[in-house]
């Protein structure tokens, strides 16, 4: 008998996350479809980063549900959530500057090494192919990299854990437009070629909507629109009201 196929869909229902008295997420619901790019856009303080941090287990939700591959993620620790196939690249080029480039990448594969030794090697090679500049600099300390290279490194660290769902938090932050374009295109290719599901948080709505399939517009912790990306992009009134252009 064939295995029952698991639906690799991320389903978020009525999610509430609070920092003390501040309600950062106020009943957020949406789904991220398998093999698609869903972008979460909105102004500063809309709750975008909190959303990703709650999914990856860095923040505890107050109420609501997060379902991934038919299982609830509520109450799970980040290190277990990675094991279920979700990799989070947090805001600000999250690498460890005191470690070398190779060590930063290897770090993301440590938990898989015992069981998937050969696959880990393959994953490392794929990452090096994806970002040849990192391969050249593998012995250098991550602290010596440029901002764009750090972001590539942070993404590589996430990819060697072989995720099915990639949570990307503001990959464009502080980077030159050309570098942003390269990174976004790489993520787009990954999604189209290997069926990776992507949840992309961006302040730069234009860049994100250009590659995304669906757009979720957040404002003050609430979903104000959840539409196919093209429709969201075309909606002048939503843009004017929430994105300011």
């Amino acid at each position: 008998m064939g295995k029952k196929s698991v639906d690799l869909m991320l389903k978020i229902e009525n999610l509430v996350t609070e920092y003390g008295a501040v309600r950062a997420l106020d009943g957020v619901s949406f789904t991220a479809a398998e093999g698609k790019i869903t972008t979460v856009i909105g102004a500063n303080g809309a709750g975008k980063s909190t959303l990703l941090r709650t999914i990856s287990g860095l923040e505890n939700s107050k109420s609501g549900q997060i379902v991934w591959a038919d299982k609830s993620l509520i109450g799970k620790a980040p290190e277990s959530i990675v094991r279920s196939g979700i990799a989070h690249v947090p805001e600000g080029h999250a690498v460890i500057p005191q470690l070398t480039v190779a060590e930063n990448i290897e770090m993301g594969s440590l938990f898989r090494r015992r069981n998937f030794r050969s696959d880990v090697k393959l994953a490392m090679e794929e990452v090096c192919e994806l970002f040849p500049r990192l391969a050249e600099r593998s012995k250098q300390l991550a602290g010596t990299l440029s901002g764009g290279e750090r972001q590539m490194l942070a993404i590589s660290r996430a990819l060697v854990s072989r995720p099915k769902l990639l949570l990307l938090d503001e990959p464009s932050l502080g980077l030159a437009p050309l570098v942003v374009e390269q990174i976004i295109q790489t993520v787009n290719d990954l999604c189209r070629k290997s069926g990776l599901t992507v949840l992309l948080v961006e302040q730069n709505a234009n860049t994100a909507l250009a590659v995304a399939d669906y757009g979720v517009l957040l404002s003050l912790g609430k979903v104000v629109a959840n539409l196919p990306a093209a429709e969201l992009k075309a909606d002048a009134s939503l843009r004017a009201a929430y994105l300011g252009y």
């Binding site: 990856s56 860095l58 620790a77 980040p78 290190e79 990675v82 094991r83 990799a87 989070h88 947090p90 999250a94 690498v95 460890i96 005191q98 470690l99 060590e103 290897e106 770090m107 993301g108 440590l110 938990f111 898989r112 090494r113 660290r157 996430a158 854990s161």
Partner: peptide, 22 residues
């Protein structure tokens, strides 16, 4: 690998946990 996990956890526990290090 265990040594790397220890260094990573000491330097940045959040990134370490997101990398699956217990």
């Amino acid at each position: 690998g265990m040594g790397l996990a220890m260094r990573a956890s000491a330097l940045n526990p959040e990134v370490a946990r997101l990398s699956g290090i217990r």
